[in-house]
C-alpha cells in the first residue's frame, strides 16, 4: 500500500475529530456570539417585536412614546380622588376603593416587591437596599422614612398615594412602575403596617385577648 494513502487516511480521521471537539467545546463553554441558525425558517422576520430596535427613528425605538399633549383613549383620568389621591378640597381622607381582604393581600405582595427593598418588610426604613446604601457611606444617600412616626401615621391616604405616585424628597416616583389599583392596595397595606406596629392589647378583639397571655 502506498505510504501517501495511509497518511491521507490518518490525516482525514484526525481532521474528522475537529468538528466533534468544537461541538464538545460549545457544550461546556459560554459564548458571546448569538447562536448560528442553520435553518432559518423565518426565525428572524422583518417585523418589530415589543421593545425591539427600529433604526428608522432617531431614538432607535420601535415602540413610539406618547405624543406630548395628547391623551390616549381610555386614559383620561378625570376622577382625581382615584387617580391622584386629591380632590379640589385637598387630600383624600378615605379610600376611594373598597378595602377588602383581597386588596390587603395584593397590597402586601406589591409592597414586598416595590417598597420593601428600601423601607423594609415592616416599614422601619431598614430594607436591604437602604442598608447597603448606608454601608457604602457615599454621602449621597438619605435613609428612607419609617412609617412608624406620628407624622407619617397622620398623613391622609391621598397623601401617601401621591407619595408613591410622584415621589417625595429623595424617593423617586413609582407611578410609572406600579398601576393605580396596586398603589391603592399598597396604601392600604401601609396603613395595616402602621396599625400593627402601634397596637395595644386593647386593640385585639376581646375574644382573642386571652391568647395574648
Amino acid at each position: 500500500m502506498p505510504r501517501g494513502l495511509i497518511y491521507g487516511a490518518v490525516l482525514l480521521a484526525a481532521l474528522a475529530l475537529i468538528p466533534l471537539a468544537l461541538i464538545a467545546r460549545a457544550r461546556v463553554t459560554t459564548s458571546g456570539v448569538p447562536r448560528i441558525q442553520l435553518i432559518q425558517d423565518m426565525g428572524r422576520q422583518p417585523k418589530f417585536k415589543t421593545q425591539s430596535a427600529n433604526p428608522m427613528f432617531a431614538d432607535g425605538r420601535a415602540m413610539r412614546p406618547e405624543v406630548p399633549g395628547t391623551v390616549a383613549r381610555g386614559e383620561l383620568h378625570e376622577d382625581g380622588a382615584y387617580w391622584a389621591g386629591r380632590t379640589p378640597d385637598g387630600w383624600v381622607m378615605a379610600f376611594p376603593v373598597a378595602v377588602t381582604d383581597q386588596l390587603m393581600r395584593r397590597g402586601q405582595e406589591r409592597y414586598d416587591i416595590f417598597c420593601a427593598p428600601c423601607h423594609g418588610l415592616a416599614g422601619y426604613g431598614d430594607g436591604p437596599v437602604a442598608k447597603r446604601a448606608d454601608a457604602l457611606q457615599e454621602g449621597t444617600w438619605t435613609p428612607p422614612s419609617s412609617y412608624h412616626t406620628d407624622l407619617v401615621r397622620q398623613r391622609p391616604v391621598g397623601f401617601i398615594f401621591n407619595t408613591i405616585s410622584n415621589g417625595i424628597r429623595n424617593m423617586p416616583a413609582y407611578g410609572p412602575q406600579i398601576p393605580v389599583a396596586d398603589r391603592w392596595a399598597i396604601v392600604a397595606y401601609v396603613r395595616a403596617l402602621q396599625r400593627s406596629q402601634d397596637a395595644r392589647a386593647t386593640n385585639v378583639p376581646p375574644e382573642l385577648q386571652r391568647q395574648l397571655r
Binding site: L20, I23, A26, R27, T29, T30, V33, I36, L38
Partner: peptide
C-alpha cells in the same frame, strides 16, 4: 454514523442555544 453523530450533537439546541452570554 459519523455524519449522524455530527448532526445530532452539532445541531442540537443543547449545543447551539445553551451558553449564550452576550456582553
Amino acid at each position: 454514523a459519523y455524519v449522524v453523530v455530527l448532526l445530532a450533537y452539532g445541531a442540537s439546541p443543547r449545543t447551539t442555544n445553551v451558553g449564550y452570554q452576550p456582553v
